[in-house]
Simulated assay, not measured.
Amino acid sequence: MTARIDYEIEKYQFSEVSEPPRLAQQWSEVLAECRQEKAGSEARLRLALLNVDYVTSFELPFRLQLIRAPQLIDRLRGELQLNRKAVTISDNRYGCVYSLKTDISHIPDTFRYRFSNRIRRVEAGNVSNTPYQEIAKQVKAPRERLRLALEAGLPVTALDGLFWFGMQRIAADVSTLRKSGMKISTAEVDAFDTLTDTVRRVPVYRLVG
């Protein structure tokens, strides 16, 4: 396994279908500040919580490239005194809204997002995103995408899962696949992406045997 994977992001668009212009501007400013400061995961989350009127648990991993969003939220909830309420995502998923505002009754109860990207996955000098894209075209269910990738002998990082398979909590899906009988190893690799302009250690999974 290579010591580092670079994600060269040529296009990255994630937004709520009916996103108010005010929120769009807030997110644009937060992401610009994250890049300028080369902010780490917790710092990116803190900036978002402090500067965006409200955020959903579904959007945080995609907006901020967070691979452990629930743990980071738990770490900051007491410090920032967040208010939350349950919401529905895309008609059939449950999530939460977080906000520093006291009155959150005006926040929508349902959300629907759109996501498109063009990303080059560069490993040991070679572009390697095509196999992940092809699997994403074959099936829709994120866990099934992960299963096919592992069975094809591909290493799958948490960012691979996020960018191409739509997986917010890849560790939970890996655990489910292990319970079904798949032998999956876990390691770590340095990952750099041009959206956050940071390098960090991320988990990488492979099928054993």
Rank of each mutant, 00 (worst) to 15 (best):
I89Y: 02
W164Y: 15
R68V: 07
I107N: 00
Q25E: 05
I73D: 00
T196F: 04
F163C: 09
Y205N: 08
L80G: 00
M1L: 09
E134S: 06
E16Q: 11
L45I: 13
F165R: 08
A32T: 09
Y12F: 10
R147S: 13
I73N: 01
V199F: 01
E16R: 12
I107M: 00
S128A: 14
M1N: 07
A152I: 06
Y113H: 06
V174I: 15
S175W: 07
G161V: 03
V139K: 08
K137V: 15
D193Q: 00
A152Q: 14
D74H: 07
A86N: 08
K179I: 08
P61C: 00
T102L: 14
F115K: 11
D6E: 13
D91W: 11
V30I: 08
Q13F: 01
R118N: 14
I184M: 00
E123G: 06
D173C: 10
I104K: 09
A141E: 13
V122A: 10
N83F: 02
A48S: 08
K183D: 11
N126M: 08
V122I: 15
Q71C: 13
S28I: 10
K38C: 10
P142W: 15
G78W: 06
R118L: 08
M167H: 01
F115E: 05
E8A: 09
P61W: 02
M167C: 13
T56N: 00
A187S: 12
R4G: 07
K140I: 08
L66A: 02
E134W: 12
F58W: 14
I170N: 06
R120H: 10
Q25D: 04
A187I: 02
P21H: 12
E59D: 08
T102Y: 12
A86E: 11
L50Q: 15
I135K: 09
L159D: 04
Q65K: 10
Y205T: 08
Q138R: 06
I104Y: 01
G40P: 10
F115Q: 05
D173E: 14
A158S: 15
V189I: 09
A24S: 11
S175H: 14
V202Y: 02
D109P: 03
R22D: 13
Y113S: 06
T2H: 04
D190W: 14
Q36K: 15
Q25P: 00
L195P: 07
I107K: 01
T88Q: 11
A141G: 05
V208A: 07
E29T: 13
K38L: 03
Y12I: 06
C96T: 04
D190Y: 14
L154H: 06
I107W: 00
G209N: 12
S57E: 09
V208D: 12
